[in-house]
Nucleic acid binder design. Structure first.
Lengths: 209, 209
DNA sequence: GGCTCGATTCTTACAATGTAAGTTTTCTGC
DNA sequence: GCAGAAAACTTACATTGTAAGAATCGAGCC
């Protein structure tokens, strides 16, 4: 909500602030609420003025993805061991996606590999090389971890972040599933930890790729 | 494109055929081409008539996801070993999602756990129990594999199924990444195989969950 | 001061979309 | 032949993205 201005008066905007407002709008009211008119209102301008900062709505969505993913991945310190480095990367990525569940469906449509994320990949590859992994092997490890984090975030976002509650499963029809859920196996954090640990220990032991 | 009829004449439709036509339209012309009017035209009826088979567009999209996922997961034979069972499940899921890349972004917004998919989960849990895994442990394994498959499919869909071609990376700025790509580490199938194998071998060795 | 020019903002307009409301036709069972 | 449900249609409207162009402002130069 910008201050009142008369026609033509500057609102002091920038692409950055437009993206920021868009992200805020999406977080508050959902992806469906992101319309050019509403976004403009949020910024205190008219709909068409948004087009001075963004060529069209698709580019706006691209900008959202870029902003979220880059923020997730930038400035990751190399951990003490390669396991810690990868674990930190995975958790940071998932944490960010869970904090912005609305952009996850966008991710599945836009490539997220920008120059800045490439830099992080390169740095991580270096850490892995020092641990004795070839670049090819390292890249596959990073791919696997990235896929896991994104998939887990997608499933969470799809489940509305409130997955199988203890009594959501009919114990008569699906006894094993019900028992597993009762034991807390569907807990979001726990199950991601489990998957991540399994993948990391699999990296250590798997055949050379 | 149904045959020409006069007003009120039956077109012989059903929810099934509507979903089928919608899926065909999406595959052919993309998600953006799926409008009620175009879908209706495809079926040889008027837009509003579609609402006799589907309450609204959101339900239509739900139906697409349901249809694709159920088809992916139904009737999976239990493999000889639990590894084979899980691998088959993962590959079937990914294969289907790659065949229908347009529904992947939808997946990230709608829960895909219907009664029919629950039955598959239950059956897989049974296979895993025979191999000595508790239901809780088994469910986590299934979750991990599902997340990996969906994530990998999402990344592929995002990259437009044509990921890092050999010369897409600047070898000057990112030498390790470029070398890895040159060696074929970005190959889609190879990298999924790698991740899947790592995860499976991690399941065998990881601490009890 | 006044003038010009580019940057920013606004106004108006339009085609496309989802769908509400109500109408007409056809088919089925009596 | 008739009643009523089922299936299709017509019309209408609010909302959306965005094209085209006009209006206003601020800065630099005279």
């Amino acid at each position: 909500m910008g201050a009142k201005r008369t026609r033509g008066q500057r609102a002091g905007l920038s692409r950055e602030r437009v993206l920021e407002a868009a992200l805020g709008l999406v977080e508050r009211d959902g992806l469906g609420a992101l319309t050019m008119r509403r976004l403009a209102a949020e910024l205190g301008i008219e709909a068409m003025s948004v087009y001075h900062y963004v060529p069209n709505k698709d580019a706006l969505l691209d900008g959202l993805v870029e902003r979220v993913v880059e923020r997730a991945v930038e400035a990751l310190p190399a951990g003490a061991t390669w396991q810690e480095t990868l674990r930190e990367y995975a958790m940071a990525l998932r944490r960010t996606l869970l904090a912005h569940p609305e952009v996850v469906p966008l991710l599945a449509v836009r490539p997220a590999l920008t120059a800045r994320t490439m830099a992080t990949v390169e740095a991580t590859l270096d850490t892995l090389r020092e641990a004795g992994f070839s670049p090819a092997r390292g890249l596959r490890m990073i791919h696997a971890i990235t896929g896991l984090a994104i998939g887990e975030a997608a499933v969470n976002a799809g489940a509305g972040s409130d997955p199988l509650g203890p009594n959501a499963v009919d114990a008569g029809s699906f006894p094993l599933l019900a028992a597993a859920v009762q034991e807390g196996a569907a807990d979001l954090n726990g199950r991601f930890d489990f998957a991540l640990s399994a993948l990391l220990s699999g990296f250590a032991g798997a055949a050379e790729g």
